[in-house]
Protein backbone atom coordinates (compact mmCIF):
# COMPACT_ATOMS: atom_id res chain seq x y z
CA UNK A 1 0.00 0.00 0.00
CA UNK A 2 1.48 3.34 -1.06
CA UNK A 3 0.30 6.89 -0.51
CA UNK A 4 -1.25 7.15 -4.00
CA UNK A 5 -3.30 3.98 -3.43
CA UNK A 6 -4.45 5.17 0.01
CA UNK A 7 -5.31 8.63 -1.37
CA UNK A 8 -7.22 6.93 -4.19
CA UNK A 9 -9.24 4.76 -1.82
CA UNK A 10 -9.98 7.71 0.48
CA UNK A 11 -11.08 9.81 -2.51
CA UNK A 12 -13.33 6.98 -3.66
CA UNK A 13 -14.73 6.59 -0.15
CA UNK A 14 -15.32 10.35 0.02
CA UNK A 15 -17.24 10.26 -3.26
CA UNK A 16 -19.73 7.66 -2.01
CA UNK A 17 -20.05 9.45 1.34
CA UNK A 18 -20.78 12.78 -0.41
CA UNK A 19 -23.48 11.13 -2.49
CA UNK A 20 -25.00 9.28 0.50
CA UNK A 21 -24.84 12.52 2.49
CA UNK A 22 -26.72 14.38 -0.24
CA UNK A 23 -29.38 11.72 -0.67
CA UNK A 24 -29.83 10.90 3.02
CA UNK A 25 -29.81 14.42 4.46
CA UNK A 26 -31.57 16.55 1.86
CA UNK A 27 -33.61 13.55 0.61
CA UNK A 28 -32.82 14.50 -2.97
CA UNK A 29 -31.09 12.76 -5.87
CA UNK A 30 -31.67 15.60 -8.34
CA UNK A 31 -28.99 15.57 -11.03
CA UNK A 32 -27.81 12.07 -10.08
CA UNK A 33 -28.02 9.31 -12.69
CA UNK A 34 -29.66 6.14 -11.37
CA UNK A 35 -28.24 4.31 -14.36
CA UNK A 36 -24.66 5.15 -13.37
CA UNK A 37 -25.44 4.01 -9.83
CA UNK A 38 -26.85 0.72 -11.13
CA UNK A 39 -23.74 0.18 -13.24
CA UNK A 40 -21.54 0.81 -10.21
CA UNK A 41 -23.52 -1.70 -8.15
CA UNK A 42 -22.82 -4.27 -10.91
CA UNK A 43 -19.15 -3.21 -10.99
CA UNK A 44 -18.69 -3.90 -7.27
CA UNK A 45 -20.83 -7.06 -7.29
CA UNK A 46 -18.69 -8.59 -10.05
CA UNK A 47 -15.37 -7.26 -8.77
CA UNK A 48 -15.71 -8.36 -5.15
CA UNK A 49 -17.00 -11.90 -5.71
CA UNK A 50 -13.86 -13.17 -4.01
CA UNK A 51 -14.61 -11.21 -0.85
CA UNK A 52 -15.24 -14.41 1.12
CA UNK A 53 -12.77 -16.69 -0.63
CA UNK A 54 -9.57 -14.66 -0.70
CA UNK A 55 -8.71 -12.56 2.34
CA UNK A 56 -6.18 -9.81 1.64
CA UNK A 57 -6.50 -7.58 4.74
CA UNK A 58 -9.08 -6.20 7.15
CA UNK A 59 -8.81 -2.87 5.34
CA UNK A 60 -9.44 -4.53 1.97
CA UNK A 61 -12.47 -6.47 3.16
CA UNK A 62 -13.86 -3.48 5.04
CA UNK A 63 -13.60 -1.18 2.00
CA UNK A 64 -15.21 -3.80 -0.25
CA UNK A 65 -18.16 -4.04 2.13
CA UNK A 66 -18.42 -0.24 2.23
CA UNK A 67 -18.46 0.08 -1.56
CA UNK A 68 -20.91 -2.79 -1.97
CA UNK A 69 -23.20 -1.49 0.77
CA UNK A 70 -23.13 2.14 -0.38
CA UNK A 71 -23.69 1.42 -4.07
CA UNK A 72 -26.64 -0.91 -3.45
CA UNK A 73 -28.19 1.38 -0.84
CA UNK A 74 -27.92 4.37 -3.21
CA UNK A 75 -29.74 2.36 -5.89
CA UNK A 76 -32.34 1.33 -3.29
CA UNK A 77 -32.82 4.96 -2.18
CA UNK A 78 -33.24 6.23 -5.74
CA UNK A 79 -35.61 3.41 -6.76
CA UNK A 80 -37.75 2.80 -3.70
CA UNK A 81 -37.47 5.60 -1.13
CA UNK A 82 -40.54 7.66 -1.94
CA UNK A 83 -39.16 11.08 -0.99
CA UNK A 84 -35.87 10.52 -2.84
CA UNK A 85 -37.47 8.71 -5.78
CA UNK A 86 -39.68 11.76 -6.39
CA UNK A 87 -36.58 13.89 -7.03
CA UNK A 88 -35.16 11.50 -9.62
CA UNK A 89 -35.56 12.97 -13.14
CA UNK A 90 -36.30 9.79 -15.07
CA UNK A 91 -37.06 11.70 -18.29
CA UNK A 92 -33.51 13.04 -18.53
CA UNK A 93 -31.65 9.94 -17.30
CA UNK A 94 -32.17 7.90 -20.46
CA UNK A 95 -28.67 6.70 -21.45
CA UNK A 96 -29.05 3.06 -22.65
CA UNK A 97 -26.63 1.77 -19.99
CA UNK A 98 -27.51 -1.88 -20.71
CA UNK A 99 -25.82 -1.30 -24.09
CA UNK A 100 -22.62 -0.81 -22.12
CA UNK A 101 -22.91 -4.06 -20.17
CA UNK A 102 -22.91 -6.53 -23.07
CA UNK A 103 -19.85 -5.15 -24.94
CA UNK A 104 -17.91 -5.09 -21.66
CA UNK A 105 -18.85 -8.72 -21.03
CA UNK A 106 -17.85 -9.75 -24.55
CA UNK A 107 -14.59 -7.83 -24.25
CA UNK A 108 -13.87 -9.53 -20.90
CA UNK A 109 -14.46 -12.91 -22.52
CA UNK A 110 -11.96 -11.99 -25.24
CA UNK A 111 -9.32 -10.05 -23.32
CA UNK A 112 -8.42 -11.16 -19.78
CA UNK A 113 -5.41 -12.31 -17.77
CA UNK A 114 -6.81 -15.78 -16.96
CA UNK A 115 -9.85 -17.53 -18.38
CA UNK A 116 -11.58 -18.37 -15.10
CA UNK A 117 -15.06 -17.42 -13.94
CA UNK A 118 -13.83 -15.01 -11.25
CA UNK A 119 -11.12 -13.49 -13.45
CA UNK A 120 -13.45 -12.87 -16.40
CA UNK A 121 -16.06 -11.22 -14.16
CA UNK A 122 -13.34 -9.22 -12.44
CA UNK A 123 -12.08 -8.03 -15.85
CA UNK A 124 -15.68 -7.28 -16.86
CA UNK A 125 -15.99 -5.06 -13.78
CA UNK A 126 -12.89 -3.12 -14.85
CA UNK A 127 -14.26 -2.47 -18.34
CA UNK A 128 -17.70 -1.60 -17.00
CA UNK A 129 -16.34 0.81 -14.41
CA UNK A 130 -14.41 2.62 -17.13
CA UNK A 131 -17.68 3.57 -18.89
CA UNK A 132 -20.08 3.57 -15.92
CA UNK A 133 -19.89 7.35 -15.56
CA UNK A 134 -21.28 7.98 -19.07
CA UNK A 135 -24.98 8.12 -18.10
CA UNK A 136 -24.09 10.59 -15.35
CA UNK A 137 -22.06 12.81 -17.67
CA UNK A 138 -24.86 12.78 -20.28
CA UNK A 139 -27.40 13.67 -17.57
CA UNK A 140 -25.08 16.46 -16.42
CA UNK A 141 -24.99 17.95 -19.91
CA UNK A 142 -28.77 17.77 -20.20
CA UNK A 143 -29.52 19.31 -16.83
CA UNK A 144 -26.81 21.91 -17.50
CA UNK A 145 -26.49 23.19 -13.97
CA UNK A 146 -25.92 20.87 -11.00
CA UNK A 147 -25.68 21.43 -7.28
CA UNK A 148 -22.29 21.49 -5.62
CA UNK A 149 -22.66 18.13 -3.88
CA UNK A 150 -23.26 16.31 -7.16
CA UNK A 151 -20.34 18.18 -8.73
CA UNK A 152 -18.10 17.20 -5.83
CA UNK A 153 -19.30 13.61 -6.08
CA UNK A 154 -18.34 13.38 -9.79
CA UNK A 155 -15.03 15.17 -9.17
CA UNK A 156 -14.01 12.75 -6.40
CA UNK A 157 -15.21 9.73 -8.37
CA UNK A 158 -13.11 10.82 -11.35
CA UNK A 159 -10.11 11.65 -9.21
CA UNK A 160 -9.84 8.30 -7.41
CA UNK A 161 -8.87 6.27 -10.47
CA UNK A 162 -6.42 9.02 -11.47
CA UNK A 163 -4.69 8.50 -8.11
CA UNK A 164 -4.74 4.75 -8.80
CA UNK A 165 -2.80 5.45 -12.02
CA UNK A 166 -0.09 7.15 -9.91
CA UNK A 167 -0.20 4.09 -7.64
CA UNK A 168 0.35 1.77 -10.64
CA UNK A 169 3.27 3.89 -11.85
CA UNK A 170 4.80 3.76 -8.36
CA UNK A 171 4.30 -0.01 -8.11
CA UNK A 172 5.68 -0.55 -11.61
CA UNK A 173 8.95 1.08 -10.56
CA UNK A 174 9.13 -0.50 -7.11
CA UNK A 175 7.80 -4.02 -7.64
CA UNK A 176 9.40 -6.42 -10.15
CA UNK A 177 6.92 -8.05 -12.58
CA UNK A 178 4.12 -5.65 -11.60
CA UNK A 179 2.54 -5.35 -15.04
CA UNK A 180 -1.24 -5.27 -15.53
CA UNK A 181 -2.00 -3.76 -18.91
CA UNK A 182 -5.74 -4.48 -18.74
CA UNK A 183 -6.13 -2.64 -15.41
CA UNK A 184 -3.92 0.21 -16.57
CA UNK A 185 -5.66 0.84 -19.89
CA UNK A 186 -9.14 0.54 -18.37
CA UNK A 187 -8.13 2.96 -15.60
CA UNK A 188 -6.66 5.40 -18.10
CA UNK A 189 -9.77 5.36 -20.32
CA UNK A 190 -11.94 5.82 -17.23
CA UNK A 191 -9.96 8.86 -16.07
CA UNK A 192 -9.80 10.39 -19.55
CA UNK A 193 -13.61 10.28 -19.81
CA UNK A 194 -13.68 12.80 -16.96
CA UNK A 195 -11.26 15.19 -18.68
CA UNK A 196 -14.09 17.29 -20.10
CA UNK A 197 -15.83 17.44 -16.72
CA UNK A 198 -12.61 18.31 -14.89
CA UNK A 199 -12.03 21.16 -17.34
CA UNK A 200 -15.42 22.78 -16.64
CA UNK A 201 -15.26 21.93 -12.95
CA UNK A 202 -11.99 23.81 -12.53
CA UNK A 203 -13.23 26.72 -14.65
CA UNK A 204 -16.29 27.09 -12.41
CA UNK A 205 -14.27 26.38 -9.28
CA UNK A 206 -11.91 29.21 -10.21
CA UNK A 207 -14.92 31.37 -11.04
CA UNK A 208 -16.35 30.57 -7.60
CA UNK A 209 -19.79 29.58 -8.95
CA UNK A 210 -21.58 26.22 -9.18
CA UNK A 211 -20.70 23.80 -11.99
CA UNK A 212 -22.54 24.61 -15.24
Amino acid sequence: MNIFRLAGDMTHLASVLVLLLKIHTIKSCAGVSLRTQELYAIVFATRYLDIFTSFVSVYNTFMKLVFLGSSFSIVWYMRYHKAVHRTYDREQDTFRHWFLVLPCLVLALLIHEKFTFLEVLWTFSLYLEAVAILPQLVLLQRTRNIDNLTGQYIFLLGGYRGLYILNWIYRYFTEPHFVHWITWIAGLVQTLLYADFFYYYFLRFIGGRGVE
Binding site: H12, F67, E113
Partner: peptide
Protein backbone atom coordinates in the same frame (compact mmCIF):
# COMPACT_ATOMS: atom_id res chain seq x y z
CA UNK B 1 3.89 -14.43 -10.37
CA UNK B 2 1.68 -14.93 -7.34
CA UNK B 3 1.57 -11.20 -6.54
CA UNK B 4 -0.61 -10.66 -9.56
CA UNK B 5 -2.92 -13.46 -8.41
CA UNK B 6 -4.13 -11.85 -5.21
CA UNK B 7 -6.30 -8.91 -6.13
CA UNK B 8 -4.88 -6.63 -3.48
CA UNK B 9 -6.43 -3.51 -4.98
CA UNK B 10 -10.04 -2.32 -4.88
Amino acid sequence: DDASDTKDEL
